[in-house]
Every structure is written in C-alpha cells, then in structure tokens.
C-alpha cells in the first residue's frame, strides 16, 4: 500500500472512532461518559497549566529507566541462555517462576522490601519485563547462523567485534520485537506502581481522578500517554528499525 493511502486510511479510522465515541457520549448524556470534545478540553487545560507535561515527564522518565534496564539485563541473560545449554537448564525454572509472578505482587513486594522510593518502582517494573525480554532474546540467540559464527571463529575475531558485527545484527529483529511489546507493557505497569506508592506521575493523577469520579480527567491523561507512546513508536523505534534493516532487499 502506498504511504499516502495508508495515512488516509489511518486518519479515516481515527475519525470513525472519535465519531462513534461522540455519538455514544451524546446518547448517554452523563458526566461518567464524556465525549472526545470534553476530554480534549480537559487535556488542553492540563497542557496549558503545565500539569500534564510535568506528570507525563515523570512517568516517562520511569518508563525510560525501567525500559533500558530491562532490555540490557534481559538481552544479556537471553544471549547467555540461548548460547549455553548449561545456563539454560540452570535458570529455565527461574524464568518460568518470574514469568508467572503477577506484576502486582512484584510491585507490592518491592515497596515492602525496598521502601516507597523511586528505586523500588524501577526495580519492580524491570523485574516484570526482564523475563519477557529473556524469552525473546533466547529464541534469537538460539537461531544464530552457525556459518557466520564459524567464519568469525576461523578469522579469530575478537569478542567485541564478534558481538558487534556478527551476533547483534542477527538479534536486532528480536530486540525490535521485545522493545515494541516492552514499551506497551512497561508503561502500563509503571502506572500501577505509581498508583500504589508514588505521589506523582500519571498513575498518581489517575488515582486522584478516580476518587473524584472525574472520568474526563482519566481519559485525558490516558490518551495523552497513548499519543506519546505512538510518537515514540513512529519517531524512534521505526526509524531505528529502518536503519538496521537497510541491507535487506
């Protein structure tokens, strides 16, 4: 599909969604289901007062820190497990346990053990995401092409060069996949952690609006974040992906 046509469809689809929402809101005629216009107005006010940008910034910083931490540690562990059968067997059970602990339990335990501090949030969110990264990266490390690895070995490439030129380029698609699903998962968990134990950030704001039954506020903050994540996807992830894939035909 040509790009202009695609944008055209996307715009049409978004307008359709908003229209449906407005119709439902008009029909319900209740403060519990405000329409897109009302939500937009709240968003505009929060933007003008600087409150939205401030809270968004705090939450984004937490998302970024957890994201970087989870991707780095998860990738390292994933490669180790994918390349070594011993490591894989030793830690496979740990991985299954970590994969299945509810996010909420990790957050509560982190607050109990570490305290109601910033480090607890970053820790809890990373621990939630790391096992997913490990599973994806392990799959990638298992599927490394033995031919190019042998080439690297016979030409005695240093560890660093082997990683940078031979191993990592084969793992980029797996990294992109776990980055994409990671971004979506992490920001949702950050909100829960904020709601439970922080006095700022979007999650804290949502809790406030919940106590006031301010649905327009809740939707305004949620949509603001969805827009930011979309911008990250289109403005950061996709260009990086295009760059590392330019060798493909």
């Amino acid at each position: 599909m040509r790009i202009p046509t695609r944008i055209c469809y996307q715009t049409l689809s978004a307008i359709g969604f908003l229209a449906l929402w407005q119709v439902a809101a008009t029909a319900a005629d209740s403060p519990l289901l405000p329409g897109p216009v009302a939500v937009g107005r709240v968003m505009g006010d929060a933007l003008a007062s600087g409150e939205l940008v401030h809270q968004l910034g705090i939450t984004l910083a937490r998302v970024a820190a957890s994201f970087v931490l989870a991707m780095t540690i998860g990738t390292a562990i994933g490669i180790a497990m994918g390349r070594s059968r011993v490591v894989d067997r030793l830690f496979d059970t740990w991985l299954i346990i970590l994969l299945n602990i509810p996010a909420l339990v990790v957050i509560i335990l982190a607050y109990v053990w570490v305290g109601l501090v910033e480090a607890a949030v970053i820790l809890a969110v990373s621990v939630n995401k790391i096992p997913n990264v490990v599973v994806t990266m392990r799959e990638g490390a298992r599927s490394l092409d033995p031919d190019t690895l042998e080439m690297a070995q016979s030409f005695r490439l240093s560890r660093g060069r082997n990683l940078r030129h031979v191993v990592l380029p084969q793992l980029y698609p797996f990294m992109a996949a776990s980055a994409r699903s990671g971004l979506a998962l992490i920001w949702k968990i950050v909100l829960v952690a904020e709601l439970l134990g922080r006095s700022d950030g979007i999650g804290f704001q949502l809790n406030l609006f919940f106590q006031l039954f301010d649905v327009a506020g809740i939707l305004a903050y949620a949509f603001a974040f969805i827009i930011v994540v979309q911008i990250l996807e289109v403005g950061v992830l996709q260009p990086i992906e295009r760059r590392v894939n330019r060798w493909r035909r």
Partner: peptide, 13 residues
C-alpha cells in the same frame, strides 16, 4: 588462517 568456505559466508548486513 585464511579460510575460503564453500559458501562465501559474508555478513549480509
């Protein structure tokens, strides 16, 4: 050692 493999084994990226 210079090894010329049966397939070229170049890094496509």
């Amino acid at each position: 050692i210079g090894y010329v493999f049966q397939n070229p084994r170049l890094l496509p990226w």
